[in-house]
Nucleic acid binder design. Sequence first.
DNA 1: AAGTCACCATACGGACGAGTATGGATCGCC
DNA 2: GGCGATCCATACTCGTCCGTATGGTGACTT
Lengths: 192, 192
Amino acid sequence: MNVSSKPERTRLSAEDWELAALHLIAEQGVGALAVEALARQLGVTKGSFYWHFRTREALLQAALERWEQYGEREVLGQIEQIADPRKRLPELFRRVAHELQPHRVYAALLKALDHPQVVPVMARVSQRRMEFLTTAYREAGLPAPQALNRARLTYAAYVGFLQLNFTLGLPRINHEEFDAYVEHMIATLIPA
Amino acid sequence: MNVSSKPERTRLSAEDWELAALHLIAEQGVGALAVEALARQLGVTKGSFYWHFRTREALLQAALERWEQYGEREVLGQIEQIADPRKRLPELFRRVAHELQPHRVYAALLKALDHPQVVPVMARVSQRRMEFLTTAYREAGLPAPQALNRARLTYAAYVGFLQLNFTLGLPRINHEEFDAYVEHMIATLIPA
DNA sequence: AAGTCACCATACGGACGAGTATGGATCGCC
DNA sequence: GGCGATCCATACTCGTCCGTATGGTGACTT
């Protein structure tokens, strides 16, 4: 009990800073990413930070790239293994709806689209997801142009939902009602 | 050419500051709302500002309330006059899609939902719009629970669209393609 | 056991923005 | 045309946060 109260007294690596940065972004947004605040949270001081990174901007960049690389497979990787294209979209909807935690960073980044560093990342990620949705709709039986528009609509609904329920607390929809909403989405957006 | 280059040399009122604040919010977001920047833009200095407002926070509050009061009738006020409930929703979709300018403030506020002052305003405004949508869907023939969920889906799509196209410039959809997308939305979301 | 390298603390400089103090200008009014 | 109220400029203080400089400490080599 003499060494430290809570944090493990191991030394830090650049990866630790990046993960902590992503965590902070998910909780308080990109604007709250300050080096002294992060350092406090990690139990060290700025001196540590500026050994690992040249600047605050560099940390943001590294964190964003890490998120883009390692964060995407969790979302889309599993889904691609579902053989039946017919079942794929409903399954995707239900999983996304019930595992909202990985989407917190995306929601936070969505609110920082005025920041020059996040725009290209979000553009790539969103574009990739959109393409995934589009082909999924085509495989589900929609003709090409309709599939694209349906993907746009679906993805917009996803993004809007994140905003309205994470950040804003619209009449705090409860659990059963939420499930009903998801099924309504499936019935409305996915062709029979 | 000696007095001033561009701005009119009239004195300012609190209303001028609030309108300028809303304009700045629409263009650069809530975070960019700085009093010295605003003062420069209005051709005065901070001395003027702190006569009209006690603090920066007070300006934000006043601007938000002004937006909530006077900004809403333009969006929903006209629509309520459309007699046929059947025609109301498609007309609403098309108008909103083609007059995106009044929605810029809303889009900016959406990205500032971590700010304590904007949350209640956005909660009220969104709630009101949601209720409008819900009754519109009921009048269009949907049973109550479905109407609510459809309204949720529609509004989420609206919000998501604002994010993805204002701030992010997803593959910069062109004009004809955009019209096709709006019609696709109408066909998909509005019951025949 | 001495030295080297990786990691971190402390202390400082400087930019920026909010808010205050105070005096000057200008308008309305009698 | 003088006078009070309104509006604005100038010149500060203060707190926050980025980045720098420099010295210290632990672990690991040889």
